[in-house]
Design a protein around this nucleic acid. Structure first.
Lengths: 115, 115
DNA sequence: CTGGATCCGATTTGATACTG
DNA sequence: CAGTATCAAATCGGATCCAG
């Protein structure tokens, strides 16, 4: 088993590594929303009514730190911050899409409907 | 946002649904090992030295309950139980593989080596 | 408007001991 | 051999209040 450390955390395989970068409850939904347009903080929040400020902030920060999205601050009052996807983020979206399609297939098999 | 319930849990999107089926720390590693051969409990444990009995048991059970693997008990002494992959599990392995390859790509980008 | 800081409960995972 | 049972630790996510 290929074992390795990254940022003091032990990983057992590449899958786990990938999921730590773009997994969790909110990262994929965020990437998905940014895939073809720039969005502001409040805009993201509005399309994800159940996310808390804490989670939105922290997930955006992590995604930015690891180069999946870009944060642009406009020095105006009131504050304006725009988030956009990067090249690396775009690649991630392809994976998200694969999982998403698979998820829909599974939902069908399990008789789950999204309404 | 497509919101829905499955087994009393609220999901925000198909990605989350899929990851709840085959995500977590151990499910993908298990599916991966079973992808082209039948394995016994102890055998699985041996190739995943860091998994605890509790986790191995619970993850195998969930995977079985949701139809990704099959559990076959031989009524012998000492006990013998074999785990094999199902058609549904094989589909899941394709997704695992996609994520795995992506993970390796990311590791390279991040300068992480698996040795 | 865009967050940061703090506290807390829920969930996940691990350690250890034990059993048919 | 193939698990159970119990307890503890770690992590995740949410609620609330505060601020430039």
């Amino acid at each position: 088993m290929p074992e390795f450390y990254y940022r003091k955390k032990l990983y057992y395989n590449p899958v786990e590594f990938a999921m730590d970068r773009i997994g969790g409850t909110w990262k994929m939904p965020i990437l998905w929303r940014l895939k073809d347009r720039v969005m502001r903080y409040g805009e993201l929040k509005k399309t994800m009514p159940r996310i808390s400020d804490k989670m939105l902030t922290s997930q955006l920060k992590e995604l930015e730190e690891e180069g999946f999205i870009k944060r642009k601050v406009y020095p105006v009052v009131p504050p304006k911050v725009e988030y956009s996807i990067t090249r690396r983020g775009r690649k991630a979206v392809r994976i998200v899409n694969t999982i998403r399609e698979y998820g829909m297939e599974l939902m069908k098999e399990f008789g789950v409907s999204s309404g």
